[in-house]
């Protein structure tokens, strides 16, 4: 069985599948993108901005990815809502990572301050 034969076979088998898939997609399309996912993703991006992801280079990078993928998802929302939903998931995961990295950066600054404070106190009291 060569590749052409397989393709032949697949095409014949897929015809009814393609039809049902189209129907499924159509069903999805009528509901458009998952609004809950959309809301979650937007909230995550806002959250990242609120914790200062723009100020930490690594976090800023992932926030940027999140924004771009959200924009892409919005662009294809009507044409390919399924892909758009997954773009939203990707965007959300980047936004969540941005939050964690931003918080890590902030914690690093705080830790440095705390260490300095402890050092000062040591010098003062010990």
């Amino acid at each position: 069985m060569n590749i052409d034969q397989v393709r032949q076979l697949l095409r014949g088998a897929l015809t009814p599948v393609a039809a049902t898939s189209l129907i499924g997609l159509g069903a999805c399309a009528t509901g458009s993108v998952n609004q809950a996912q959309m809301t979650e993703t937007q909230a995550a991006i806002r959250g990242a901005q609120e914790v200062g992801a723009d100020d930490a280079p690594q976090a800023a990078l992932h926030l940027q990815y999140a924004k771009e993928q959200l924009a892409d998802a919005e662009t294809i929302a009507d044409d390919d809502p399924e892909r758009a939903n997954r773009l939203l998931m990707r965007a959300e995961s980047d936004a969540e990572l941005a939050i964690a990295l931003a918080e890590e950066a902030e914690l690093r600054t705080e830790a440095e301050e705390t260490r300095n404070r402890i050092r000062e106190e040591r010098e003062q009291h010990l």
């Binding site: 992932h62 990707r90 995961s93 980047d94 969540e96 990572l97 939050i99 964690a100 990295l101 918080e103 890590e104």
Partner: peptide
């Protein structure tokens, strides 16, 4: 991303 997030945490 999730793994990286867990690592950051």
């Amino acid at each position: 991303r999730k793994i990286l997030t867990v690592q950051a945490r």
